[in-house]
Computed example of a mutant assay.
Amino acid sequence: MDPRALILVLVAAVAHASWNLLSKKAAQADSLVFIWLVAAVSAVIWSPLFAGFLLVARPRLSWSDLAVIGGSTALHLAYFMLLQRGYGKGDLSVVYPVARGTGPMLASLVAVLFLGERPTAAGVAGIVLVGVGVFLMSGGSGRGDLKGLAFGLATGLFIAGYTVWDSRAVGVFAVAPLMLNYLGEVGRALVLSPAVLGGRRRGLVLATWREHRAGIVGAAVLTFLSYLLVLIAFTMAPVSLVAPAREISVLIAVVLGGRLLAEQGWRHRLLAASVILGGVVAIALS
């Protein structure tokens, strides 16, 4: 893997685990309201950067570009909704590893089988190690663990979907990563607006903002930043390598869940992280 892509992916992993911690802390808030607030705030915060991009690059959007961006928006919306619901049912150190583990394994499988990508033997070994390590981390026997596991698996399907879709968007369709990311935030905010502002949830918006304002702003910044870095990495390396390498974030998330949220069993899951680290090293050397 290109060393520049690996650096981008590792920085993105830290940012990604951090915003998931913030989302978990807001798990008891209405999930649609929280997701809408994060998307809306993100659209506002990053608007100067997007405006500057439009002035400098002067991109032209075709109907096919808009269709690709719309598909990405739909996949990400389902992902965020399932993830936030999952955090209301299970631990960060269960939902996050399972979701992140299912996603890259399926994305890599699709990339190899249908997109013609051919990772080296070390790359294949790394993919396998990352997947095994992530699922070892998700161990647990409580009812909450089983619910978290189910939501994690469902979320992982959409992670695989948007990973492959977005890699093609910035690769084959040459949609600028910044445009895909920003318009995705705007799209989620617009799609959710009727449900949030037109019904009973409207009264929850101000209360949710007051209680979780710092988390909303933090998630708005880190969500956008983490995925922008990954999209840029997609232009430097194949999806079958980028997708698994970013899963170093599960190690960070398990530590955050154990140390900051006092989740049980995190030390056992931390031991399993050594398997993931081995996978990341293998991928980086492939």
Rank of each mutant, 00 (worst) to 15 (best):
S141Q: 13
G142H: 06
R143Q: 15
R143D: 10
R143P: 13
R143Y: 15
G144E: 12
G144W: 12
G144K: 09
L146Q: 15
L146W: 13
K147C: 14
K147I: 13
K147F: 15
G148E: 00
G148K: 00
L149F: 11
A150W: 14
A150Q: 05
A150R: 14
A150M: 14
A150C: 10
A154Q: 01
T155G: 15
T155F: 10
G156Y: 06
G156R: 07
G156C: 10
L157R: 09
F158N: 01
F158C: 07
F158L: 12
I159F: 15
A160K: 02
Y162R: 08
Y162A: 11
T163Q: 03
T163M: 12
V164Y: 05
V164K: 12
W165V: 07
W165M: 08
W165D: 00
D166P: 08
S167G: 15
R168N: 09
R168S: 11
R168E: 10
A169R: 08
G171V: 07
G171S: 10
V172Q: 13
V172G: 11
F173I: 13
F173D: 06
F173S: 11
A174K: 13
A174D: 12
V175M: 03
V175A: 02
V175D: 01
V175I: 14
A176E: 05
A176S: 09
P177G: 09
P177A: 04
L178K: 05
L180E: 01
L180S: 09
L180A: 08
L180F: 06
Y182K: 03
L183A: 00
G184Q: 03
G184C: 01
G184E: 04
E185N: 14
E185P: 01
E185R: 13
E185M: 14
V186T: 06
V186N: 01
G187M: 09
G187K: 02
R188P: 12
R188G: 11
R188F: 14
A189G: 09
A189C: 07
A189D: 06
L190T: 05
L190R: 08
V191E: 01
V191H: 07
L192F: 05
L192K: 07
S193K: 04
S193R: 03
S193Y: 06
P194S: 08
A195Y: 10
V196L: 02
V196S: 03
V196I: 01
V196C: 10
L197Y: 07
G198M: 07
G198I: 02
G199L: 14
R200P: 08
R200W: 06
R201L: 15
R201C: 05
R202P: 07
R202M: 09
R202D: 03
R202G: 11
R202T: 10
